[in-house]
Amino acid sequence: MNVFRILGDLSHLLAMILLLGKIWRSKCCAGISGKSQILFALVFTTRYLDLFTNFISIYNTVMKVVFLLCAYVTVYMIYGKFRKTFDSENDTFRLEFLLVPVIGLSFLENYNFTPLEILWTFSIYLESVAILPQLFMISKTGEAETITTHYLFFLGLYRALYLANWIRRYQTENFYDQIAVVSGVVQTIFYCDFFYLYVTKVLKGKKLSLP
């Protein structure tokens, strides 16, 4: 495992903990897209089914379980415990616009036409677009709380670090996973606009608000 991979995983973990901590401390999930969080829970559920079929390492197993737990607890906080604070009027992205093409593509373009492999492929494609309901919500309301922007920054940074990981793996192991790389590039591109706003506004102490 190279340094980009471990930093990527830690960035991913930090993003999820930041979001959970923010909701827990403020007892409020306004500004968070429940739809994006449902999609992430679905991503982890369909990707980590191999927890039941093969063991890779302790690290791998522990991280998968932690990611799954974080995703489900977040969804529970939004739709259960703190649902009264959930801003559902602004979380209006139509999920079928993402799910239908992603399901179709995962049947068409995969490594192996087996249920587990198709679900893994589905999870990779879905992850690349799962943040869109959240970004749509921010563009609709025109603003985001600072901790929400930190969450988005680390979530985007994780995928950008994975790109560096894949370049390193290609150089050192001659390994590449075409589905993950192409989806990862797409996913990272969705964050570029946000990265720009984060650096020019949030890091200078201003709240992220769109004109």
Binding site: M1, R5, D9, H12, D50, N54, I56, S57, N60, M63, K64, F67, Y111, N112, E117, W120, Y162, N165, F175, Y176, D177, Q178, A180
Partner: peptide, 10 residues
């Protein structure tokens, strides 16, 4: 490319 389809990445 992927011999055994074992995925160690998260």
């Amino acid at each position: 490319e992927l011999d055994d389809l074992e995925k160690d990445e998260l």
